[in-house]
Amino acid sequence: MVKYIFKRLGQTVIVLFFVSVIAFLLIRLAGGNPALLLAGDGATDAEIAEIERSLGLDQPLVVQYFKYIGNILRGDLGRSTSYGMPVANLILSRFPNTLKLASVTVLFGCILAIPLGIIAGSHQGTVIDFFATLFALLGQSMANMWKAVVFIYIFSVWLGWLPSIGMEGGIKSYVLPVMTLGWQMSAQVTRISRSGMIDTLHEDFITATYAKGIHPLVVRWKYAFKNAVCPVITLVGMRFGTMLAGTIIVEAIFSWPGLGQLLNTAVNQRDYALVQALLLLSGAMFAIINFAVDIINSLVDPRIKLR
């Protein structure tokens, strides 16, 4: 196991290296001159050149890249040209908010979706199965934007129960964003849990388990579900990773100060340092989550061998 961990860490470092190169190149390929954008329309060519020099943009690409990597390794993420602040400050102030939203969404999403999927899969064709499938269908087909607006209209405008913007309302602020983001995630988790259960319940060993006189609930929730859980864990991991990269739409609508809008603004302003840092952060998050999912899955299902 230890050997495997080291191997994966090594792989992660390589992946992050590639991510950094891609991030570095991608934002530069988009064209546009950050120095010009900073200096403003009325600046003279000399002023623009001055800013270019101060940002290090006059150096050849390779030099720029190595300087960038060197700084990262020293913990210096650079300075955001659009905010005028160190990038690290920006990310540190926004990332926890995205993390909180993503975590609560995943938690509630799973608490709702997994039991729903298990029950629906165990009772295929019944009323509960019908509603579970409907729930999943709506969750995946309705656009998040639309869901958000409807929720705000019902719960904030009409009923007046919940705040529609910001994070300051405590738990109440989480409800609508989590419902919006979570519904879509729950939809997928429900479907996968359900189909996993349906497949598993047809297996011989399930009949054998019933034949041992074990209570049906235990048969389904413990002995059957453990066979169906690995794809669920993988899916949840992936969705969590996506959410951590920031969900632009939900964060914009609810004025949730997370990472989502940051990338959008950064690209528009050609804020090289910020874009690179955000892409690198996303890459790191995904790598870590993938790693965790692999470890968890191997612990759950002995047939999965870590190589």
């Binding site: 297996e203 011989d204 060993f205 388990t209 453990k226 066979n227 759950v300 299902d301």
Partner: peptide, 18 residues
Amino acid sequence: GDKIAMIFQNPLTSLNPV
């Protein structure tokens, strides 16, 4: 399982793999 126990046909599929 207690009074009446059953042994199944296919040993490759009648045990829970996890």
